[in-house]
Amino acid sequence: MSTRESKERLELLQGTLDLLILRTLILGAHHGQGIARTIQQTSEDELLVEHGALYPALQRLEERGWISAKWGTSANNRRARFYSLTTAGRKQLVKETTKWKRLATAITRILGAELEET
């Protein structure tokens, strides 16, 4: 069901969506559509976030107590469920970010070395 437009974007790696959601929420409470938009915009439209996939992830994070949710009103006066980061979520974000950075560095190092060989 992918369109041409979406093929050009990067598919999200498994497990990274949670991290991105947490990162987005550090700026303040957001509803699901806002989070999706923010991720897309911040990544300069490089990342493909299937909006539907966002919700199970939000649900999961909520159950783990990393984010909390409550119904509110959006800027254009629509009812929406707003998510915000909990203290536990903040800690988790720091942890995950560090982990991700180490992983990215390591992978970059390996990939870089390989390129030099060829």
Binding site: H31, Q33, Q59, R78, R79, A80, R81
Partner: peptide
């Protein structure tokens, strides 16, 4: 635990916000 209706409402809200945008 959330009810499935609450979840559906959220999805509906999402679609509406996206349509607005």
């Amino acid at each position: 635990r959330r009810k499935i209706s609450d979840f559906s409402a959220e999805i509906e809200a999402h679609l509406q916000l996206e349509i607005d945008r």
